[in-house]
Amino acid sequence: MTRTTPARPISVEAVFPELAAERGRTTRLHPRPGRPGMRDSHVGGPVLWPDDEPWPVCHEPHRRETEGYAPHEIRIARAAGAWPPSRPWPGAEVLDEGEPVPFVGLAQLFRRDVPALASGPDGADLVQLFRCPFTHGPRPERRYRLRWRRADETERAAGFLATPSQVPLLRWEHELPEPCVLHPEEVDTYPWAEDDTLPAPLIARIDAWEDAQTSEHGPDALSYQGDLSIPPGWRVGGFPSWASTGPMGIDCASCATPVRLLLTAGSSEMDADSHSWVPMEDRDPSLRGQASIRGGLSVAQPTRLRFGRDRDLHVFTCPADPGHPTRWVLA
């Protein structure tokens, strides 16, 4: 089934004509629980991984763990609408701080499914996203990894890995992605309005307009950030959202070129401030507003993943050389 973003409640360019020059495009991925295959673009499904390649492993020191959740019990609990039981770490020893840990495959995207996906090194058109299931350092921090491939070459491999390496327990239930099929859709977007993301006079007018909306409509008021600029959830390209951190200037660590947004992985596909973006196919046409949304967690949090404290994970790459180190930002 396709997913169709509703028309915006108002035309933002009619209110702020200057934004026509700032308009961009993003591909909303619209993940929904399903049964994707390894040759599909997906979140949480089987990764297309040749069986003669070692599965990616995190070798950095990580926090010691003494308990967690078994992946198969997480799946059973989700199907039952329950919470999985916490288990002590198996064996006589807890997970050692220096022990290598297999990465968890979070997503893979083919450009044939998402034409707006930027090219990787040597024209790679398949990107795979991984995360270490444990935290690192006192803050604590996470470790992510991208693997770029050429899809045509990879699909000619003699065999593929059926069961990736994994740790026996995950520290948190939300470390395990729910297998989701994708429904890519391109939509118009506009930059986040804060600091120097737009001209200062324009940001001042947007702020004044939002204040007037709140005075007139109260809690049902429209907002530029929530309803008109950037959709929530998983998306490719477009503009980063900066709800938690405020805008950040980010350059390539190798060549100082300003990086571009490759991918945003969202903790949620909607919240109270962004429910107007929920697709028409996930709504009851007889109802209006947030009350019309159907599907529960399968619509609001389909992947079951969390990034930070329900933030967005922005993945940036260097436009001058996509082989340069990836930049990861939680915002």
Rank of each mutant, 00 (worst) to 15 (best):
G237N: 01
G295W: 07
A256S: 15
V259C: 10
P247H: 01
S268A: 07
G296W: 08
S292W: 10
L261D: 06
I250N: 07
A300H: 02
L262A: 04
E281W: 12
S241K: 04
A243Y: 07
A272D: 12
V259K: 03
S276G: 06
G249F: 02
M248N: 10
Q301T: 15
R235D: 01
G296Q: 09
T264V: 10
S298K: 13
P240N: 04
T257E: 14
A265K: 01
C255A: 07
W242A: 08
W242Q: 02
V278T: 15
E281M: 12
S274I: 00
T245I: 08
D271S: 11
P240H: 06
D251K: 08
W277F: 14
G289Y: 05
T264W: 00
S276T: 14
Q290T: 08
D282V: 04
M280Y: 01
S267W: 01
G237P: 04
P258E: 10
P240K: 05
E269C: 09
C252G: 12
R294H: 04
R260G: 09
C252Q: 02
G246Q: 01
P285T: 12
G295P: 02
G296T: 13
M270N: 07
E281F: 12
A291K: 14
R288F: 11
E269M: 13
T257K: 00
A272V: 09
M270F: 09
P279Q: 08
I293H: 10
R283G: 04
L262H: 01
G238K: 00
D271G: 14
A291N: 14
D251F: 10
P279F: 05
A265E: 03
P285L: 13
S276Q: 10
S286E: 14
E269N: 13
I293Y: 11
L287M: 14
V259R: 01
A300P: 00
E281L: 14
V236F: 03
R294P: 02
T257W: 01
R294L: 15
A256K: 13
S286Q: 12
D282T: 05
D284H: 09
T257N: 09
R288M: 07
G289T: 05
S254D: 15
R283K: 11
A272Q: 12
R235I: 11
W277C: 03
G296A: 12
G266A: 08
M280V: 14
G237Y: 01
S244H: 06
P279A: 12
P247I: 02
A272K: 04
S268L: 14
C252M: 11
G266H: 11
P247W: 02
C255H: 13
R260N: 09
S276N: 12
R260H: 12
G289W: 07
E269P: 00
V259N: 07
W277T: 09
R294K: 15
L262V: 07
S241N: 09
A243P: 03
D284Y: 13
